[in-house]
Design a protein around this nucleic acid. Structure first.
Length: 505
RNA sequence: GAGCCUGUAGCUCAGUCGGCUAGAGCACUUGACUUUUAAUCAAGGGGUCCUGGGUUCGAGCCCCAGCAGGCUCACCA
């Protein structure tokens, strides 16, 4: 094992600490009664609070001035300055704790616990005047030292995305501001869950390992169960299982869960991602639009304190109601062409006119989808519902109540990106079987993403499913929106990475 | 999958036309300093210049191949 000079020095320091009879990894708890942010917010010299404060965290900087020193302690809430005077932590003749342990053997990154009283220095900084100091855990690797001056300029920032994602623990330590992203993510999920629970809907869990990967158009990960000696797939969606639960008699079920898709990776796609799907009985997609508006407005307010979110140089307002356009209306608005009566040939010619690549395998639905993606999507900045999609693209949605060739589906677009997808769910078992068979024909033609026929799901529908509306929301992408992040890797603690070339033991 | 860019100390980065022993700041080591705050001052240690070939008297730099990463595009919900 190759060690850098600094790693050797830290191991030497560890050994010397042991030789002094100090346990560098003590087992007993350290009683904490205050946190950095709390002290900085609440300390009042006249009130004389925090006179018996006890804090723990990492030593992140030390400025030794001889017999007195200033150091910075970082706990889960932030940093606070420590003032450490030799004769106070070593009141007797033995000055070893200060001269040797603190000045020489402690390193940046070590966990320490301190006790003392809070005061304000001559320069006005709230500081803990330390009277007791204890090593809680020794750090053996040098941490990148990120410095900031009074104007907030950052020096030697730890910014390499690869290093940050591979060693997220270092990223979180030296760039604590990124914790806000993950706090927001957590609050978003909590807030949405609370909203659903208040409506009386049930949070459920459905299988991740599935014998048939249904519910979406995507390539799956395949695995194998040894005892059953059969292939299993990691789920690409949980839709078909949640609908089985509606068949079983629940009024509303929802699941936050990981989905797995064996496809490309880029700044908006990770092989595993989190979706929230919800199904509510006796409702339709019009009702669902109203529910989504109310839910997102409230969640945004709870998470960010308002309904307006800054995304890049734009402001997005999540306050409902959101604009509703049918897909045909949206295309007409942004191309000037009414395609509602067009056949496949006319659509193909129109796509060519707009320099959109087309090929013979593309049916009517696919051509409309291309046209929409190319000409409309980017313009949908404020939350907008696009409704009523061509039937060919959507095998699990109910035929439109009044428009031939369309289904009752909407997608919610924000800042040019789709963040939610919903249907009036198809509950006619004979129609559903026909749609699955159409998918099988696509599969035979080589479409790797076409859906499999799920005989058990059809059996469930044949017993009868009430009219139901279902919705899926991409939690990662919604988090990106609410935290103003451009890449999905920034909202995942541990995004998928290629393996490291060599990882020393 | 395609194009462009990058890879030099623990971190952030210089490195000229191919030419002295490869540099800076922070971090680290030794010393000074009892209210500093990007602490300061003095001295010092630290390098597989991503890897492997090639050209050359001589390569961090030029050429070829590979690896890793970033950005853009394509594919993909």
């Amino acid at each position: 094992m190759h060690l850098s000079e600094q790693e050797i020095i830290r191991r030497d320091n560890l050994q010397k600490i042991r030789e002094l009879g100090i346990d560098p990894y003590p087992a007993e708890k350290f009683a904490v009664n205050a946190h950095a942010a709390q002290i900085l917010a609440e300390f009042d010299a006249e009130a004389g609070n925090f006179q018996d404060a006890s804090l723990a965290g990492r030593l992140m900087m030390s400025r030794v001035m001889g017999k007195a020193s200033f150091a910075e302690l970082q706990d889960s809430t932030g940093r606070i300055q420590l003032y450490i005077a030799r004769d106070e932590i070593c009141p007797g003749e033995d000055k070893e704790l200060y001269n040797t342990v603190f000045k020489k053997l402690l390193d940046i990154g070590d966990f320490i616990g301190v006790k003392g009283h809070v005061f304000t220095t001559r320069t006005g900084e709230t500081t803990v005047h330390v009277t007791e100091l204890k090593l809680l855990s020794k750090s053996l690797r040098p941490l990148p030292v990120v410095k900031r001056d009074d104007e907030g300029h950052v020096f030697d920032a730890f910014t390499d995305p690869e290093l940050r994602y591979r060693q997220r623990y270092v990223d979180l330590t030296v760039n604590p501001e990124i914790k806000q992203i993950f706090l927001t993510r957590s609050r978003l999920i909590t807030s949405m869950r609370r909203y659903f629970d208040e409506q009386g809907w049930l949070e459920v869990e459905t299988p991740i390992l599935q014998p048939i990967h249904g519910g979406a158009a995507a390539r799956p990960f395949k695995t194998h169960h040894n005892t059953l000696d059969m292939p299993l797939y990691l789920r690409i969606a949980n839709e078909l299982y949640l609908k089985r639960l509606i068949v079983g008699g629940f009024d509303g079920v929802y699941e936050f869960g990981k989905m797995f898709r064996n496809e490309g990776m880029d700044r908006t796609h990770n092989p595993e991602f989190t979706s929230m799907e919800i199904y509510v009985a006796y409702k339709d997609y019009v009702w669902m639009m109203e529910m989504v508006e109310e839910c997102l407005e409230r969640v945004t307010r709870e998470v960010t304190g308002g309904t307006v979110v800054q995304v890049g140089d734009r402001e997005i307002d999540f306050a409902g109601p959101y604009e509703r356009l049918t897909m045909f209306e949206a295309i007409e608005r942004h191309t000037g062409v009414d395609i509602s009566g067009m056949d496949e040939e006319a659509l193909r010619d129109l796509c060519k006119k707009f320099h959109i690549e087309v090929d013979k395998t593309m049916g009517k639905g696919k051509l409309i989808d291309e046209l929409f993606g190319e000409k409309v999507e980017d313009h949908l900045i404020q939350p907008t519902y696009i409704t009523d999609y061509p039937i060919e693209m959507t095998p699990l949605a109910k035929k439109h109540r009044s428009s031939e060739g369309l289904v009752e589906r909407f997608e919610l677009f924000v800042n040019g990106k789709e963040i939610a997808n919903a249907y009036s769910e198809l509950n006619d078992p004979i129609d559903q079987r026909q749609r699955f068979e159409d998918q099988l024909k696509l599969k035979e033609r080589g479409d790797e993403e076409a859906m499999e026929l799920d005989e058990d799901f059809l059996r469930a529908l044949e017993y009868g499913m009430p009219p139901t509306s279902g919705l899926g929301i991409g939690i990662d992408r919604l988090t990106m929106m609410l935290t103003n992040q451009l890449s999905i890797q920034e909202v995942l603690f541990f995004p998928q990475m290629k393996p490291e070339r060599k990882m020393e033991p």
